[in-house]
Amino acid sequence: MNPLLTFLVVLIGLYGLSTSKNIIKSVFCVTITEAGVILLFLNLGNLEGGSIPIFAEGLVNIVDPLPQALMITTIVIGSTVTALALMLCIKIFHHYGSVEWDVVLRDGGEE
């Protein structure tokens, strides 16, 4: 496992977020970035090795359990936030008739 390779996933997500022309594509890129950040947290907790953080006979070294406890909630919350963003996309399509950033920004600016 290499944290640098994991950070590359975050950067790819950020690149997609800033260049995508479609709103739904942006939501996809947010999902990628989020997965990269979660993986990075777990990666840093696992840096010095260890076993699964569940008590058993003869346990001497565990991975850091704190990032894992935070990341579980992040995954569940992240899915609901994605759902909220997609519901807004549906409403934007009904209002403007398009989900391209160019069209929505141009028409939104006129008002």
């Binding site: 953080p53 346990l59 565990i62 850091d64 704190l66 579980i72």
Partner: peptide, 23 residues
């Protein structure tokens, strides 16, 4: 923090799974 959880986790929270114990 890791060593603290390993030493006192079971006593404090009574949870075998440390992640559940923390959250």
């Amino acid at each position: 923090a890791k060593r603290y959880y390993l030493l006192n986790g079971l006593e404090d929270t009574a949870s075998m799974n440390l992640v559940t114990g923390i959250y």
